[in-house]
Amino acid sequence: MDDSIAMQVTRYRPDKNSQPVPVDYEVPLRTEWTVLDGLNHIKAEQDETLSFRWSCRMGICGSCGMNVNGEPRLTCATFLSDYAPGPVRVEPLANFPVVKDLIVDITDFMEKLPRVKPWIIRDDDVTEIDGEYIQTPEELEAYQQFSMCINCMLCYAACPVYGLDPDFVGPAAIALAERYDLDSRDRGSRERLDVLIEKEGVWGCTFVGECTSVCPKHVDPAGAIQRYKLKAAQESVKAFLLPKALRR
């Protein structure tokens, strides 16, 4: 193995650049180093001004998503040695506006998330808690996969529909809606369907499937969206066939 590897990092400093530009760096190539370690090496040793988000460095906080050689990746879980002999191309996550260097603006997602009501909705308003809601391991398993989303935004970066139509609610938010729908403790699926049945909801999705393939936590947002389409279609058929009084 070579001692070093070239990293081509997209830089964008609003006070200096009119548009993002690639800049070449050379970093040590070590088996245990991730792309994030490479970036931290650049920041510590070569250029302090390089800006990127990171925190837990163990693939759970969701901060450090970037496009690595064109693919959305968590840089703390992507190893430099897998790209040897290089170069490794690091760009800000696709489909989001760039604030600076490798930092993108995810305000859009933060505004969309509450719209799908990702919390437990109940008919009964329990104020005094005297025990747990019973939930069998099977009932837990029904939604578990969709509860693994770390909001890392890789699925939004991989989704061409979101790239072309920023109004699309998007994979992670829909997967989280499905997570609560499938939770045996929840009664809110009707409310969420009202949101997702809209044009910017599930129907925006044309089933590219990339959201699922890039997901580092195996959440399968594409599957969640297809399930929602089925629910939405059933709802439309019901609305068409049944008189108002009989609809739920």
């Binding site: 919390w119 437990i120 329990v126 808690i129 025990g131 747990e132 809601y133 019973i134 939930q135 069998t136 391991p137 009932e139 837990l140 939604y143 578990q144 509860s147 609560y180 939770d183 403790r185 929840d186």
Partner: peptide
């Protein structure tokens, strides 16, 4: 215990026994 139950009511996916209890 009450705080952890509160989290359960807020949707935390606590691991369960076969009978569905925490």
């Amino acid at each position: 215990p009450r705080e952890l139950l509160q989290l359960e009511h807020w949707g935390c996916p606590w691991s369960r026994q076969d009978d569905g209890r925490i």
